[in-house]
């Protein structure tokens, strides 16, 4: 496997009217080419802004920490993304080496421009194709993602397509520039379960064919189990657990991950009562000191939880968890 992406010590704050809030706090992970990483967490956990940081796509009030280092390894050498400043520099990665697909495909297509015009426009910007070639490639991509009668759809507007078809068109558009890295932000959340299954299948096929890396953002652990190779669980801007998908799903080690899995209604045993995680995710303005999960945790080991930020402890070679339970030196 070849390394595709290194994210080191990503810290991201936003200047807002109510003060400076920390959205992402010291997050590090890596991604290999052809690997799918699931990024899980509830709303407000910082998973979307983490992924957007990789493209420097956050709004202008975003402040990146001084130690933040994001490196994308391309064929002609590594790119230090944090050092890219102008939009000309960023053009290499945005829509070029990195593409993104969003949750709500209706909001991602311009309503008054045909699907085809939007697809060829980006190909003409990011590659040296002419319009004729770009049209051919676009229709080919639409066909590849399973849209029937692609040349007709190419001339249509987003509102003429159904939800599932729009999401496919979105994927076709994102992949037509042959990106190295695809960021998929809740790509199946707005879809019905039968269509979701189709889109998940499609994405798995495309990873195999194109060999790109995917950061798959979702709150649905079932979707993660079906698509990802590894998982990172986020809570209030921090990574609390990460590892290979089988390790994390079968042997969840952080109390938060355990809680997420226990809260999920399972079909194989209807007698198990649903267990909620008590309380709500705190506002980013009131980040608790110590472990960020301490306000809702049922396995507090002592004062250390409310005063010291836990380090990552190794559960297995491919599985790490940031929790004081696993800290031998912690006061019990």
């Amino acid at each position: 496997m070849t390394r595709l992406l290194d994210v080191e010590n990503l810290t991201l704050q936003f200047d807002t009217d109510e003060g400076r809030i920390t959205a992402v706090d010291d997050v590090s992970f890596t991604l290999e080419a052809g690997e799918v990483m699931g990024l899980v967490g509830e709303s407000g956990s910082g998973k979307s802004v983490t992924a957007k940081s990789v493209m420097k796509l956050n709004p202008s009030n975003a402040i990146y920490g001084p130690d933040t280092k994001v490196t994308l390894h391309l064929d002609d050498g590594p790119v230090d993304i944090m050092s890219l400043q102008t939009s000309t520099d960023l053009k290499v990665i945005r829509g070029g080496a990195i593409s993104m697909i969003f949750q709500e495909p209706m909001a991602s297509f311009a309503p008054a421009i045909t699907i085809g015009d939007q697809m060829t426009e980006q190909l003409q910007i990011h590659t040296d194709m002419n319009l004729k070639r770009a049209t051919e490639v676009s229709i080919e991509m639409l066909d590849r993602v399973g849209i029937s009668d692609a040349s007709t759809r190419f001339k249509q507007y987003a509102f003429e397509l159904s939800g599932g078809m729009r999401q496919r068109a979105m994927i076709a558009m994102a992949l037509s520039t042959k990106p190295k890295l695809l960021i998929a932000d809740e790509p199946t959340t707005a879809l019905d379960v039968t269509i979701q299954a189709q889109v998940i299948d499609l994405m798995k096929d495309l990873v195999t064919d194109f060999g790109m890396g995917i950061i798959f953002i979702t709150h649905d652990l079932g979707v993660i189990a079906q698509t990802a190779d590894k998982v990172a669980v986020m809570y209030l801007g921090r990574l609390v657990e990460q590892g290979a998908v089988r390790d994390v799903i079968r042997n969840p080690s952080h109390p938060y991950t355990k809680g997420l899995i226990a809260a999920l209604p399972q079909l194989d045993d209807l007698d198990v009562p649903l267990q909620a995680i008590p309380g709500d995710i705190p506002s980013p303005l009131e980040r608790p000191p110590g472990c960020v999960f301490n306000t809702r945790c049922s396995s507090i080991v002592g004062d250390v939880c409310t005063s010291v930020i836990p380090d990552f402890f190794k559960v297995t070679d491919t599985h790490q968890v940031a929790c004081h339970i696993y800290d031998e030196g912690a006061s019990k």
Binding site: V193, D220, V223, A225, Q226, R246, I249, R250, Q266
Partner: peptide, 9 residues
């Protein structure tokens, strides 16, 4: 079509 929690499924 409900995604199973078992990665081997």
């Amino acid at each position: 079509a409900i995604p199973s929690l078992d990665p081997d499924d």
